[in-house]
């Protein structure tokens, strides 16, 4: 397994946020994690990224233990819920930020950034500042900035939560395209049922700090806890003639 999380726990003061959580994920696959606000999704991602320290348990990436490693050493990128861009850098500067940190040659940075701008469908926007972009454009830049560094693992924390329906759908398609092109391994956290089903190769449900991973999507659809069945019943009731 490429990613293995074993018996991970984290408390803040007396609140147990992540409770002996275990998961595993193969390379080049995306695991969707569905969960309500406050269920511990963000904390789980931050623990894996090294932005929080676990109370117990271990995280392994490609056979390498991550505890004690700084976020930079882990080569795991955590993508925020919001389109958080560096306000002092242009679109080009934002996308190339990680490559600059890796001391990649400027000519190569320019080449890779141009290619990424094209893939993100942001042609002609490269020299704009973040405040000149729309929400969807900012989120695309944020994506490109994370993916261009070729992270071992990408952690997406409700990345489309603030977007309108149309933009959200386009971003979901774009992410799937980019994930295929760059061979991304990722954890995709969302509270949106449809998004969780659409985005993940594998799917899990997080509740009160614990994670249940389903062997296939059919199991997920049939489990009453996921809310899929009640959702289907709701839409079916609308189609009934006596409604």
């Amino acid at each position: 397994m490429f990613l293995e999380v074993k018996q991970l726990s984290k408390s803040f003061q007396k609140d147990l946020i992540v409770d002996r959580l275990s998961l595993s994920l193969d390379q080049h696959r995306t695991l969707s994690i569905l969960g309500r606000s406050g269920c511990g999704k963000t904390t789980l991602l931050k623990l894996i990224a090294g932005l929080e320290t676990a109370d117990q348990g271990s995280i392994w990436v490609n056979g390498e233990e991550m505890s004690g490693k700084t976020p930079a050493e882990r080569k795991i990128v955590y993508l925020y819920q919001e389109d958080l861009l560096f306000p002092h850098l242009t679109v080009r500067g934002n996308i190339g930020f990680g490559l600059k940190l890796q001391k990649v040659a400027p000519s190569q940075i320019a080449e890779q950034v141009d290619l990424m701008i094209e893939r993100l469908e942001l042609q002609g926007q490269g020299d704009k500042m973040p405040q000149q972009l729309s929400g969807g454009q900012r989120q695309r830049v944020s994506f490109g900035r994370a993916i261009i560094t070729n992270p071992r693992l990408l952690l997406l924390d409700e990345p489309f939560g603030s977007l309108d329906v149309g933009t959200r759908q386009r971003m979901q398609e774009l992410f799937k395209e980019l994930a295929a092109i760059y061979g991304i391994t990722s954890l995709f956290v969302t509270h949106d049922l449809k998004e969780a089903i659409l985005m993940g190769d594998d799917i899990g449900l997080m509740k009160k700090g614990s994670l249940q991973i389903y062997s296939d999507k059919q199991d997920f659809l049939l489990d009453p806890q996921t809310g899929v069945r009640s959702e289907i019943e709701f839409w079916e009731s609308l189609l009934k003639p006596n409604y």
């Binding site: 990224a49 932005l51 700084t70 976020p71 930079a72 080569k75 795991i76 990128v77 955590y78 925020y80 958080l84 560096f86 930020f97 990680g98 940190l101 890796q102 900035r145 994370a146 560094t149």
Partner: peptide, 10 residues
């Protein structure tokens, strides 16, 4: 938050 993001980017 931007600093945390930068740490995450390496």
């Amino acid at each position: 938050e931007l600093s945390t993001l930068a740490y995450s980017l390496g």
